[in-house]
């Protein structure tokens, strides 16, 4: 462990650590986006996916791992920034980007604001987790129990106490109802633009730090980074806009269910083949 820490303590090692954690977060972003986009196929699928995730027994461990990756990334970022500042105690009176002299430089607004975009993303993530993990609890029947009741959105209609016990969060409803608020949508989209700015430099930079880049592939890598940025940031930003514009406003609901959101579980495994019957128009119909 000490040896490992030493490897990561050099100029190269620190950047490798940042690159590895950064790319880990990129993978997480891809999975997260894929999950988000399930909402387009219907609330049931979305909820089923969410419930499946929360049903994973080692989820807390995974979440802790993710948190660790995130914290290492932040820690290295702070350390590297402080060192970089320290490397030039006396600054220039005039400094101009060399990009004005040669296009060999890839310096950009993105690359110069990594710290700021990172801080904004950090704030966003904190709010986001608070909002969705510990936020309002709208209950819903597990997908495989009663599709119909889920569609009604009336979680408390169940008469069976056993079923009521199995009620879980209706995250789809939460998402949709939140994304009907213009302020939330605006903040969310703005945050995704910031995320895009971060990724714009980060993606290709990570490969350069890992030493995967070479002259022949450098431009391909840069282009891939740009495409990745657009897909990820664009994908995330697309959902709220789409929900806001295209989804009907869901009826207001009471916050209900178990007191402690964390305690919800265990779930029976939702079978997607089963739930596929449920279409988003059904969902919408149910709301009206």
């Amino acid at each position: 462990m000490a040896k490992g820490a030493k490897i990561f303590s050099t100029a190269v090692g620190k950047k490798v650590a940042m690159a590895l954690t950064g790319l880990g977060l990129c993978i997480y972003l891809v999975l997260h986006l894929a999950g988000n986009l399930l909402l387009l196929t219907g609330s049931t699928q979305f909820n089923a996916y969410a419930h499946t995730l929360t049903a994973i027994p080692i989820l807390p461990l995974i979440e802790l791992g993710l948190l660790a990756i995130f914290l290492i990334h932040i820690y290295e970022a702070i350390k590297v920034s402080l060192e970089n500042r320290n490397a030039r105690p006396v600054g220039y009176q005039t400094k101009v980007w060399a990009r004005t002299k040669s296009q060999k430089s890839v310096k950009s607004v993105s690359s110069t604001t990594m710290m700021w975009s990172g801080i904004i993303i950090l704030v966003f993530v904190a709010l986001h987790v608070w909002h969705f993990k510990y936020g309002k609890f709208y209950a819903v029947q597990p997908a495989n129990v009663a599709v119909g009741t889920a569609n009604t959105g009336v979680a408390t209609s169940s008469t069976n106490p056993q079923e009521a016990q199995e009620q879980v969060r209706d995250l789809a409803y939460l998402v949709i109802s939140e994304f009907k608020k213009p302020l939330i949508v605006a903040l969310y989209v703005a945050s995704m633009i910031v995320l895009g700015m971060h990724l714009f430099h980060a993606f290709s930079s990570a490969f350069q730090s890992l030493g995967v880049s070479n002259p022949r592939y450098r431009s391909i890598l840069l282009r891939t980074g740009q495409i990745f940025t657009i897909v990820i940031a664009g994908g995330f930003a697309f959902l709220p806009v789409w929900v806001y514009l295209m989804f009907p406003t869901p009826p207001p609901r009471n916050i209900a269910g178990p007191d402690n959101g964390m305690a919800v579980v265990p779930l029976t495994h939702p079978r997607l083949t089963h739930t596929r019957l449920s279409q988003s128009h059904v969902l919408r119909g149910g709301h009206q």
């Binding site: 100029a11 190269v12 620190k14 950047k15 490798v16 590297v80 060192e83 970089n84 320290n86 490397a87 030039r88 980007w97 060399a98 990009r99 002299k101 040669s102 296009q103 060999k104 430089s105 890839v106 310096k107 690359s111 110069t112 990594m114 430099h201 290709s204 930079s205 490969f207 350069q208 730090s209 890992l210 030493g211 995967v212 880049s213 070479n214 002259p215 450098r218």
Partner: peptide, 26 residues
């Protein structure tokens, strides 16, 4: 300091040495 992979170095290098060298070093 540490490398931020911006390539400003390559842009000012009078011998136009590529920042791909840095990837090799890593």
């Amino acid at each position: 300091g540490n490398c931020s992979n911006e390539g400003e170095c390559e842009a000012v290098c009078p011998k136009e040495i590529s920042m791909s060298n840095i990837a090799v070093m890593n």
